[in-house]
């Protein structure tokens, strides 16, 4: 992390090179727990992105005024505040999704990805780079959750975003894919595939 990086690089790194889920293995709990359908993955991703952007922005703004000894509790209050906002918003405007995500929306508070951005980036950088950093991280989180949710929904329910692709007559869904075991399998195989592709590309150079 250096100040030499351009603003675009601050945004870009979270999408692939420092992707919270597939590269840094942060935010595993929501990535595994709510991705039993693509739309749940998307909703969780967007809610987390909202929280990480807002909390990074605020943390960056107040970074000079917060005593070092209480910075972590302060960050947690800020993050918890935004999580509650997101939760209330979902309950008011997207009750179906709010119900599907259940307790996992309040649990965004303990997503290490958000704390990580606050502690390692926003508390040391100005507002604009902090927001871009959070936006990139959030984008990286969203795409992985949507991909995971899609894989699990296609195999486990024969549909994607609720649209039936494979009728039950020709395809018996693998129930395991929408259960927790399916989450671990899909995430493990996805990370393995990405590591394989990365290594092959490095090898080719």
């Amino acid at each position: 992390m250096t100040s030499q990086r351009t603003l675009f690089q601050e945004f870009k790194k979270g999408i692939w090179a420092e992707n919270p889920v597939i590269k840094m293995l942060l935010g595993m709990c929501p990535a595994l727990a709510v991705t039993n359908s693509a739309v749940n993955g998307l909703a969780m991703g967007l809610a987390s992105t909202f929280v990480v952007i807002c909390s990074s922005a605020i943390v960056s703004i107040i970074r000079r005024f917060v005593p070092g000894g209480v910075r972590i509790p302060t960050y947690i209050i800020i993050i918890a505040g935004f999580v509650t906002l997101a939760d209330l918003f979902l309950r008011a405007y997207f009750p179906v999704i709010s119900k599907a995500l259940g307790p996992y929306v309040p649990l965004i508070v303990v997503n290490c990805m958000i704390m990580g951005r606050a502690e390692f980036f926003a508390s040391k950088h100005p507002v604009v780079p902090s927001i871009l950093d959070a936006l990139g991280t959030g984008t990286g989180f969203v795409w992985v959750l949507v991909v995971l949710g899609s894989i699990r929904e296609i195999l486990g329910s024969g549909s994607i975003f609720g649209v039936t692709l494979l009728s039950e007559r020709i395809y018996t869904p693998w129930v395991v894919m929408i259960l927790p075991a399916g989450a671990f399998l899909s995430l493990g195989l996805l990370i393995a595939l990405i590591n394989y592709l990365t290594q092959r590309r490095q090898g080719a150079h």
């Binding site: 000079r64 005024f65 209480v70 302060t74 505040g81």
Partner: peptide, 22 residues
């Protein structure tokens, strides 16, 4: 970041909590 004095810490947490709560 400023040095951590007890008063500063209490103040920082209180202000954050009050603002977020509001």
């Amino acid at each position: 970041m400023k040095n951590s004095s007890p008063l500063g810490m209490i103040l920082a947490l209180t202000v954050t909590a009050v603002v977020i709560g509001a």
